[in-house]
Design a protein around this nucleic acid. Structure first.
Length: 771
DNA sequence: GGAGGCCTCGGAAGG
DNA sequence: CGAGGCCTCC
């Protein structure tokens, strides 16, 4: 191992790597070498003689885990294979496979993905005659998820008066009952959903001191990546595991916390400080990624957030180009401007396509940009969308595999009991489920012994059901004796699924058939080498070198990421993705599109300070993706849900200190203010429109008594603002114009605000009102 | 069982 | 507007 590796680190990085004992928190600013520190720290531990089997390192995404593993392997070689390193879910699933039986689950339990969970909830709603509008499966699931992530069992939920009352008042009194039914049904199916993987891990450690003891003794070192994204439950588990040795190292950046909306709990950072009062903090503040203009602009944005840990991100990099503002009249023009700029930048400065990324807030925005790129024949790739394993035909075949392994898996059963069609209709299925519910057994139990249950199903259908059961059983007995690929192809043929897809000669049908072939190829590769081109369970994750189908399937449900085969990965293309997807990535040139009020920040974020601050962190993430050049664009009009809407520039734009901005706004047409003159007026119409929308019923747009109102009013024309005028600013309140420099529309004013001091504001963005 | 019409609804998204 | 779910009709 390269002994000089410590010299490759700056001072705080080196300290963070070398401080191996005791609780440590590393606050890592954007682009400050976070992954480098994590990987070097682990390599350093190994170098000092720590056993890889004693190190647990947890990440959020498969991609992050893979990257880190690869990088550690470069530093520390083969030993890296023995690390307990992976996503929270995959590491805990591995732990559960060993001991889930103590909780009453089979060791070959199924993992339900979100689709399975929603589908189960839908079935439960139907059986209980509940309206799936009132109880939207996604909403119910979110509620259940949040309960589990706060360590609240369904029993506790039902006994919690506050929760019961609030559900009652929200018109959803059955929420707790649904939680109960959902849990019981999963359990009966021998299935865990994503949250159960965490929740049951916690239970296991909580209920069985011998296990807790074993793992506490085993894991001398724990590391958590993206700590700002952990929820309470994840933190609680890690804390328990670390309790013996207390060598726990968490790495994160509060400024990049953008997942609070799905339960991430930034409070964990504070809790960590309380739980480990003697912990050491290291701050990585030097940014190696971006020009100083970009770093400073990002700082000026994030300084508008009230909730943040003190830190100063800086860079020794060159000042670089100022940030370019791009103004368009429409979403289509925005796409054209961006496409033209990419074209000319690439031609004149010898960039490659992969140096460019276009980031946006919502997926719907990709269309206009895509069209512009396509018209110019510029190669691009859109990231996001369905993962390979989420495709219908793939899930169908996987459902058969799942049934072969765990026939109690009700979601898999419902999915394929009549696909391909074998004459078992909805009525029969409903009756099977009803009988199973009555007898409190799994549906498979009923199917397998159909004559012992009063289902009311006709003899003809009963025979078909029995034939189906016999087929599944025949697969089941083949599991231990057949290689994964042999059994997989056998099942694909035997169920006639392969034939069904083959006979569909429409382009979609052909593509579905190809996907199935790709899945089978992946299984073949797994069978032969233990590895696959598709993201698949690694050999060490499966525990031994058996290449059976259940080994392949053991955590396939956890492979939700989008990367499929890297066939055209070498192709040079522009990247299009949401800001969320861009987290952790970097590009030489970044375009952030759609910087408009109600879009970025999203309209849904405007009611609560916390939501708006998360939105601002999201903007911070977007800005800090850029290495060399950053462009921020906005459009005066945009099609949203089929309606032409007018918008005004995002408040975030005026939060950037003007000194980092390049002035002239670019427009294809030279019509200076066309499209903006009536912005305020039209914006009101847009607001009203949205308020009357169904959304408004659940989450009112206006909150009357917000503790820190960000005032909303109609701005005056910038041209009317003169030195000495008293003005109102949405966030800073009332102030006085001290001086104005430059010419309209790019005039810049210095305004003194009580309590905020002098602020430099670009008048065209500041939306000032004259008192 | 499948095609086609109608209705609804729309945020970002990992495992 | 457009995707997806559901119902109806053959």
């Amino acid at each position: 191992m390269n002994q000089d590796y410590l010299n490759e680190l700056n001072e705080p990085q080196r300290q963070a790597v070398e401080c191996t004992e005791g609780p440590v928190m590393i606050i890592a600013g954007a682009g400050s070498g976070k992954t480098r520190v994590l990987t070097y720290r682990i390599a350093h531990l190994l170098n000092l003689g720590a056993d890889a089997f004693q190190i647990m390192a947890l990440t959020f995404t498969n991609k992050a885990a893979r990257e880190m593993k690869d990088r550690i392997a470069l530093l520390a070689g083969n030993e890296a294979r023995n690390l307990w390193m992976g996503t929270f879910h995959s590491v805990f699933a591995r732990l559960l496979r060993a001991d889930a039986e103590r909780l009453g689950y089979p060791s070959n339990f199924t993992i339900y993905d979100t689709d399975d969970s929603k589908s189960l909830l839908k079935a439960i709603l139907k059986e209980n005659n509940l309206n799936d509008k009132t109880y939207k499966p996604s909403t119910v699931l979110a509620r259940i998820s949040s309960a589990k992530n706060n360590l609240l069992s369904w029993r506790e939920y039902l006994q919690d008066e506050e929760l019961m009352t609030s559900d009652q008042q929200a018109g959803r009194p059955m929420m707790g009952k649904l939680y109960e039914l959902y849990c019981k049904r999963c359990f009966k199916s021998g299935a865990m959903d994503f949250d159960d993987l965490l929740y049951n891990t916690y239970l296991l450690l909580d209920k069985f001191p011998d296990l807790l003891h074993k793992y506490q003794g085993r894991f001398h070192y724990l590391l958590v990546d993206e700590f700002q994204d952990t929820n309470r439950l994840q933190y609680m588990i890690v804390k328990r595991l670390a309790a013996r040795h207390e060598n726990i190292c968490v790495v994160g950046d509060d400024a990049q916390s953008i997942y609070a909306f799905r339960g991430a709990n930034i409070e964990n950072i504070l809790t960590f400080g309380k739980d480990y009062p003697d912990h050491k903090v290291f701050k990585l503040e030097q940014n190696y990624r971006s020009t100083s203009n970009i770093v400073n602009a990002a700082n000026s944005i994030i300084s508008n957030n009230r909730n943040q840990l003190p830190k100063v991100v800086w860079t020794a990099n060159e000042q670089g180009h100022k940030i370019k503002m791009l103004r368009a009249l429409s979403d289509n023009e925005e796409g054209s401007i961006i496409a033209d700029l990419i074209y000319s930048e690439r031609m004149t400065h010898q960039f490659r396509y992969h140096d460019f990324a276009v980031l946006y807030r919502t997926n719907a925005q990709s269309r206009a940009i895509e069209e512009a790129l396509r018209r110019r024949n510029l190669p691009y790739r859109i990231f996001g969308g369905l993962s390979f394993y989420a495709r219908k035909e793939v899930k169908d075949l996987l459902a058969y595999f799942r049934l072969a392994i765990n026939p109690h898996d009700e979601e898999a059963l419902r999915r394929v009991i009549n696909y391909p069609a074998r004459g078992i209709g909805n009525t029969s299925v409903d009756r099977l489920i009803a009988a199973a519910g009555e007898a409190e057994v799994s549906v498979w139990e009923v199917i397998n012994n159909i004559d012992q249950y009063k289902t009311g199903i006709q003899t003809a259908a009963r025979e078909k059901i029995s034939a189906f059961a016999a087929m599944i059983k025949s697969f089941h007995v083949m599991l231990p004796t057949h290689a994964a690929y042999d059994l997989a192809t056998y099942i694909a043929k035997q169920t006639t699924l392969l034939h069904e897809l083959y006979s569909d000669k429409t382009p979609e049908g052909v593509s579905r058939y190809e996907n199935i072939q790709e899945l089978l190829n992946a299984i073949r590769e797994f069978t032969e080498t233990g590895k696959t081109a598709l993201p698949a369970p690694s050999e060490e994750a499966t525990g031994d070198d058996s290449r059976t189908l259940d080994a392949f399937m053991s955590d396939i449900a956890l492979l939700t990421d989008n990367e499929t085969k890297k066939e055209d990965d070498n192709a040079d293309h522009i990247s299009l993705m949401t800001v969320h997807m861009a987290k952790g990535l970097e590009f030489k040139q970044v375009f952030v599109a759609g910087l408009e009020e109600n879009l970025f920040p999203s309209m849904l974020s405007l009611n609560e300070r916390e939501d708006l601050e998360e939105e601002r962190r999201l903007f911070y993430v977007a800005v800090t993706r850029a290495e060399k050049k950053l462009y921020l664009s906005y459009a005066a009009t945009r099609y949203r849900w089929g309606n032409l809407t007018h918008s005004e520039p995002s408040r975030f734009l005026e939060e950037i200190s003007p000194e980092y901005l390049d002035q002239p706004a670019v427009s294809h047409n030279n019509e200076e203010n066309e499209g903006w003159n009536h912005g305020a007026e039209k914006r009101q119409g847009w607001f009203k429109n949205q308020f009357n929308n169904k959304q408004g019923r659940f989450k009112p747009l206006y909150k009357t008594a917000s503790p820190h109102p960000e005032i909303s009013f109609d701005a005056d024309d910038p041209k009317d603002i003169v030195v000495g005028a008293e003005v109102i600013h949405a966030r800073f309140g009332q102030g006085k114009v001290m001086s104005i420099e430059g010419n309209h529309p790019d005039a810049k004013a210095t305004v003194f605000f009580q309590g905020h001091g002098n602020k430099q504001l670009l008048l065209k963005f500041a939306r000032l009102k004259i008192v």
